[in-house]
């Protein structure tokens, strides 16, 4: 399935909903969108991976790049992911120790049951 990207705002957070396959072919589009968001002034960015069916090292590299960009800009970056196959990818690469990963957008934006990150 092709990559899909949609942005919405939740309180002071910019939520980027990603769907489809994020790989070496589609990851540049994800990078472009994240750069656009930060350049446009977004400082609290949440990437919602709920609709992602495939994620490879190139996609992971883009996410790390976005996190670094926001760190330089004194912003925050988090991921929403509850699918076990994707969580396994974050564990195997040790990126679960790099990203805050939340089970839901509500948890990521602090607008829910108060549950924190799962990593």
């Amino acid at each position: 399935m092709e990559l899909s990207l949609a942005t919405r705002t939740v309180a002071e957070h910019t939520v980027l909903e990603v769907g489809g396959e994020v790989d070496v072919y589609t990851a540049p589009r994800l990078r472009e969108r994240l750069v656009e968001l930060v350049d446009a002034g977004a400082r609290n960015v949440i990437v919602d991976l709920a609709g992602v069916e495939f994620l490879d090292s190139t996609g992971l590299g883009v996410l790390v790049g976005a996190m670094k960009r926001l760190r330089v800009a004194n912003g925050t970056f988090g991921l929403v992911c509850s699918k076990e196959p994707l969580l396994k990818i974050f564990r195997i690469t040790a990126l679960d120790q790099v990203f805050p990963i939340y089970p839901s957008v509500e948890a990521a934006t602090g607008d829910g049951d108060g549950s924190g990150p799962i990593s």
């Binding site: 090292s57 590299g61 670094k68 990126l95 790099v98």
Partner: peptide
Amino acid sequence: PDELAAESLTDEALTTGVGFAL
């Protein structure tokens, strides 16, 4: 993990390292 988020690590090196880990 501490190197994964290091500013000095290039995107290419990160992707290669993560790809190998996978």
